[in-house]
Design a protein around this nucleic acid. Structure first.
Length: 456
RNA sequence: UCCUGAGUAGCUCAAUGGCAGAGCAUUCGGCUGUUAACCGAAGGGUUGUAGGUUCGAGUCCUACCUCAGGAGCCA
C-alpha cells in the first residue's frame, strides 16, 4: 500500500480544518459518500475527527483524478489534498477543493461496504458493529464516551484519590444477589467475573484513604432492555470518614464536572448525535446570583409520596407500595420532575444491600443514595455509607445467608481500625446514554455484550 | 423466567387465501452546487425452519428457531 509523502506542515484533521482556510492541506481518511452532478463530483471524506465535503470540477483536475474518484467505492481508504474554502451557502461549513488523491485501498465493486447511508435495523447494525462504528453518529458517541471516561478519572485524580483497581476474577458473589458469570479455576475452585469492585475498594480505602476503581463489570442476569449490558464499565470511589451527606455532595460535584467537560469540547458531536444541549446545560445551571445550585434531594418517603400523588392524578399506572424498591416507570416519573439529576436517599434497608449502614434516626432505613439521571434515564449512580461495626456486619452476612468464610477478609476491615466510610458506583454506559440522549446502551460502547449477542 | 411484537431481494419494507413487488445498494447510461442528490435501464427470491389445513399458503393452524423491547433485577 502507498504511504504518504506529504510534508508534515500540510497534514491536518477535519476537526481542525477551520484553521486552514485558503491553504492547501492533506487529509488521511476514507470516502464516506459520493454525489455527482455530471462533471462535478461531491465526495464526502471522513477521518475519524469529522466529515467534510470535497468539490471536484472535471475542468479543474486531471482526467485521471476525476475518473479515479468518480469510480471510487464508499469507505475506500485514501489520502486527499485540496484547498480549504467556506461553503458558498453556509460560511460556517468548510469544503475541500480537491487537488490530489491517492487511493490507499479501493473496495471492489463486487463487495460494497455493507452499511448503507439509510435506515438500517438494529440486528443488522449490531451484526456489523465493527463497520457501523465508522458512521458519523457512532463515532461521535465514542468520542463523547472517551471524554466522559477521561473526565471521570480526571475528577478523582485531581482531587486526592488513588486509583486502585480490584480483581476481575473473584472467588464468590460479592453481594450475593446478581447472577454471575462462572468459570472453572484450575479444577478445584470456581471463579466468577466481578459484579462490583466495591468490597475490594473498601479495603484499599482503609489503606489509602480516598480511592477509586475503574474497570469492567459483569452481570449474567437475563435482562433484555435498552438499559442493560452483560459487560459494562463502572467507576467506583470509596472514601474514609465520609458520611451520606458528603457522598451526595461528591456525586453532585463529580457528575457536574463530567457534564462541564462534555459541553466544553463536544458541541459538534452532540449536534451530530441529536442531543438537546440545553438539557445538559440545565444540569450545571447556576442560580440567579450565579451561585451553584446543588442537585435536588428526595428521601425515599418523599419519593414514595410523589409517586402516590402521580398515581392519584392518573399519571402512573400502578400505585407504589411503601417498602418496595422503585420500578422502572417509577424512576422515570421521578426523574422527569427535575431538570437536574435527582438524588433519592434513605431507602428501606430491607430492599438494599447487606453492607449499607442503617440510618441512626430510623434504623429501618439505609444511608444510601441512588442518583437518577434526567429525561427518564433512570439510575446512573448507586452508593451508600457502609456498615462499619463488626457485629452488625457479621449479623447482616448471616441474615442474608452469605458464606461467612468468604467474607472473613471483609469482616477484618471492621476488626482492625474500622472507620465510617462511603462510596458509590457509576455505570459509564448509562451515563453516556443519558449525556448523548441515546435510546439504547448498545450504542454507548464499541462492542456491546448483551443477552443475545457476543459477536463481533 | 414471564408478556408482547417481528422474520419476504445485500439493506429498509409492501403484497384481500389466487402471476413475488417497490425504494436503496450493485452494473450501464445522463446531469457543473449536490446534501441519505436526482433521472433512465438491467441483473438480483428455497418468503426463518419443520409439519398441517386447502384446488391453491408469504398470507390460516401447530411446534420450534432467531431478533426486538417491556416486566422482574440492576448500573
Amino acid at each position: 500500500m502507498p504511504t504518504t509523502n506529504t510534508t508534515p506542515e500540510t497534514l491536518t484533521t477535519i476537526a481542525s480544518i477551520g484553521q486552514h482556510v485558503g491553504q492547501t492541506v492533506t487529509l488521511r481518511g476514507w470516502l464516506y459518500n459520493l454525489r455527482s452532478s455530471g462533471k462535478l463530483l461531491f465526495p464526502t471524506f471522513r477521518d475519524g475527527t469529522g466529515t467534510i465535503q470535497g468539490i471536484v470540477p472535471k475542468a479543474a483536475v486531471s482526467e485521471e483524478l476525476f475518473e479515479t474518484l468518480k469510480n471510487l467505492t464508499l469507505e475506500s481508504s485514501l489520502i486527499v489534498s485540496g484547498t480549504v474554502s467556506a461553503h458558498p451557502k453556509d460560511p460556517a461549513i468548510f469544503e475541500l477543493q480537491v487537488t490530489a488523491l491517492t487511493v490507499t485501498q479501493r473496495i471492489p465493486d463486487a463487495t460494497p461496504f455493507p452499511i448503507q447511508l439509510k435506515e438500517n435495523g438494529p440486528d443488522f447494525l449490531m451484526e456489523h458493529r465493527h463497520l457501523w462504528l465508522r458512521t458519523p453518529r457512532q463515532s461521535a458517541i465514542l468520542r463523547v464516551r472517551a471524554t466522559i471516561m477521561r473526565a471521570a478519572a480526571e475528577y478523582f485524580d485531581t482531587n486526592g484519590f488513588f486509583r486502585t483497581d480490584p480483581p476481575i476474577l473473584t472467588p464468590n458473589a460479592c453481594e450475593g444477589t446478581s447472577e454471575l458469570f462462572e468459570m472453572d479455576y484450575f479444577g478445584d475452585d470456581k471463579a466468577f467475573l466481578t459484579q462490583s469492585g466495591q468490597l475490594y475498594v473498601e479495603a484499599t480505602a482503609m489503606a489509602l484513604g480516598k480511592v477509586y476503581s475503574f474497570g469492567p463489570t459483569f452481570r449474567a442476569e437475563k435482562s433484555k432492555t435498552r438499559r442493560h449490558l452483560t459487560e459494562f464499565w463502572m467507576i467506583e470511589p470509596e472514601v474514609t470518614y465520609l458520611d451520606l451527606e458528603g457522598l451526595m455532595q461528591l456525586a453532585d460535584d463529580f457528575l457536574s464536572h463530567i457534564v462541564t467537560r462534555v459541553l466544553e469540547s463536544h458541541q459538534a458531536d452532540l449536534k451530530v448525535i441529536g442531543k438537546d444541549i440545553t438539557k445538559l446545560e440545565a444540569v450545571i445551571a447556576p442560580g440567579p446570583d450565579g451561585e451553584r445550585v446543588p442537585f435536588p434531594k428526595l428521601s425515599y418517603d418523599e419519593a414514595h409520596q410523589m409517586l402516590l400523588d402521580a398515581h392519584a392524578k392518573g399519571l402512573l399506572e400502578n400505585a407504589h407500595t411503601y417498602g418496595d424498591d422503585f420500578g422502572s416507570p417509577d424512576e422515570t416519573y421521578i426523574s422527569n420532575q427535575f431538570s437536574k439529576p435527582v438524588m433519592v436517599h434513605r431507602y428501606p434497608a430491607a430492599v438494599k444491600a447487606f453492607y449499607m449502614q442503617p440510618d441512626p434516626a430510623d434504623p429501618t432505613k439505609a444511608l444510601c443514595v441512588d442518583v437518577l439521571a434526567p429525561e427518564g434515564y433512570g439510575e446512573i449512580i448507586g452508593g451508600s455509607q457502609r456498615v462499619d461495626d463488626y457485629d452488625l456486619l457479621h449479623s447482616r452476612i448471616v441474615a442474608h445467608n452469605l458464606p461467612l468464610d468468604a467474607f472473613q477478609w471483609y469482616l477484618d476491615l471492621r476488626k482492625y481500625g474500622s472507620v465510617p466510610h462511603s462510596g458509590f458506583g457509576m455505570g459509564i454506559e448509562r451515563c453516556v446514554a443519558w449525556i448523548c440522549g441515546l435510546d439504547h446502551v448498545r450504542e454507548t460502547i464499541p462492542f456491546a455484550r448483551t443477552l443475545n449477542r457476543i459477536y463481533p
